[in-house]
């Protein structure tokens, strides 16, 4: 499953970066994630509830941040297993300062699915990915307004 998106956030790059590095904020803006618990430097345990067409379930997974470049971006490695299948995603997130009040966030990556998730969820997966992407940016916008 290919994941990609670009969105302009109304905040300076420093503020966006701080939010991206904060587990509490991340848990709030990443769709479907209900909690994010730090287990090591840049390593988190995540809980998520996802519904994908006929397939739904709660997932627990490990999330790690790699290749961290302050105010520029990082890579997000998500590995999760569940009774309905496994997913392994590597997503590159890049920030670009447009001006003092605007930052462009771009991400692209690939998620590999296996198990029931691959067998029965495939038809609706690109639709789900699009929805999640929209939600992520909407949540981010909202977080910026409320913080």
């Amino acid at each position: 499953m290919q994941l990609s998106g670009t969105h302009v956030l109304n905040a300076p790059v420093g503020r966006v970066w701080t939010m991206l590095m904060d587990p509490v904020t991340l848990a709030r803006i990443v769709p479907a994630v209900s909690s994010l618990e730090q287990i090591d430097d840049n390593q988190y345990k995540a809980l998520a509830e996802i519904k994908m067409g006929p397939v739904s379930g709660s997932f627990s997974g490990n999330l790690s941040l790699l290749n961290i470049r302050e105010n520029e971006g990082y890579s997000l490695h998500v590995k999760q297993t569940s009774k309905i299948g496994n997913a392994d995603a590597l997503i590159n997130i890049a920030l670009k300062s447009l001006d003092n009040d605007q930052t462009e966030l771009t991400f692209d990556g690939d998620a590999r699915l296996s198990g029931l998730l691959a067998r029965t969820g495939q038809r609706v997966i690109s639709g789900v990915a699009n929805t999640l992407t929209k939600q992520f940016f909407a949540n981010f916008d909202e977080a910026l307004i409320h913080e």
């Binding site: 006929p54 590999r112 699915l113 296996s114 691959a118 067998r119 029965t120 495939q122 038809r123």
Partner: peptide, 13 residues
């Protein structure tokens, strides 16, 4: 798929 996953393994697919 390219990873050898059967992506239509149900009567929905």
């Amino acid at each position: 798929d390219e990873n050898g996953q059967l992506t239509n393994g149900s009567y929905m697919d």
